[in-house]
């Protein structure tokens, strides 16, 4: 007896996919228009011939430099944030030490403090370290990443069997060895999830670069895009062109990590 396949869910999914894709598609389409022509007679649905002119405007505004700056900030942020978050999560989830509960509560409290409140203290701290005038403050802000540490704590607590760690200890494995050789393979989905989120957040971050960066050569993409407009005229065409190009790495990273990302979110969210 053969089971009749229903196409309804696929049609529904296809419709939802199209609806979700339209805004992104519109960004790409708008990037090919002269700004004042974009909104004539509703949003355009097909590409125009002004892309190269918009690209010229974008490239003329130091886009390549801003792109490299953003890339450096995001990649460095991901590497350092994921490492720090995993170590913090490992410590809280699997070790017993004095004030452990206090630190865990403190971790959660820091997640609840709006970043606008802490930004001045952070800028002063970076100034004291002599980091202003460099891109490092935009990276360091992600090292002490409370959400990453909390997420890792939950994930490691639930996904890494303590018995496996004990077995490794009995076999003579060092504590760093346990972390790198035993724990990390278990938490790969969580690492990729935090990596993707940090990449996304640091790539799109506007407020901290706005406040910290005081040199044009250090502008990241969001700051550079904001200078494409003037007080009196918004060059939507050039802005959309810049955004189209800038969003590509995020799409690429998500495509690579999507399977693990979904798994990481599901594991971190459901298991209690």
């Amino acid at each position: 007896m053969t089971q009749k396949r229903s196409w309804a869910p696929y049609i529904g999914l296809a419709i939802i996919t199209v609806i979700m894709f339209i805004p992104l598609y519109t960004v790409f389409v708008m990037g090919t228009y002269y700004s004042e022509h974009i909104f004539r007679g509703g949003l355009p649905l097909w590409f125009s011939n002004y892309f190269l002119e918009n690209l010229k405007v974008v490239l003329g505004n130091n886009f390549i430099q801003a792109y490299l700056n953003s890339l450096f900030v995001s990649v460095a942020s991901v590497l350092l944030s994921v490492t720090a978050s995993a170590l913090m999560g490992f410590a809280i989830a699997k070790y017993n030490f004095k004030l452990k509960n206090f630190f865990f509560v403190f971790l959660m409290i820091t997640m609840m403090i709006p970043n606008q409140i802490t930004i001045i203290g952070f800028v002063r701290e970076m100034r004291a370290f002599g980091m202003l005038g460099t891109l490092w403050p935009l990276v360091f802000v992600w090292i002490a990443h409370p959400f990453g540490a909390f997420f890792m704590t939950q994930f490691i607590r639930d996904s890494v069997p303590t018995e496996v760690m004990e077995a490794a200890r009995i076999d003579g494995c060092s504590e760093p060895g346990i972390f790198f050789r035993i724990v990390l393979p278990f938490i790969r989905p969580a690492l990729l999830t935090v990596a993707l989120l940090v990449f996304l957040w640091s790539w799109n971050s506007f407020m901290i670069p706005l406040i910290v960066i005081n040199r044009q050569a250090l502008y990241t993409i969001p700051l550079m895009v904001s200078t494409l407009s003037t007080m009196f005229r918004t060059d939507y065409g050039a802005m959309m062109c810049a955004l189209s190009i800038s969003v590509l790495p995020i799409i690429l990273v998500f495509c690579i990590c999507s399977k693990n990302f979904v798994q990481g979110i599901a594991n971190g969210a459901v298991k209690g």
């Binding site: 913090m88 490992f90 630190f103 203290g121 002490a144 504590e175 969001p222």
Partner: peptide, 22 residues
């Protein structure tokens, strides 16, 4: 070692914003 690292990071944490907002 991991515990000491944790303490160091938590000390820095209050000074750091999340950076996701614009």
């Amino acid at each position: 070692i991991p515990a000491l690292f944790l303490m160091l990071c938590l000390t820095i944490m209050p000074f750091a914003g999340c950076g996701g907002s614009s």
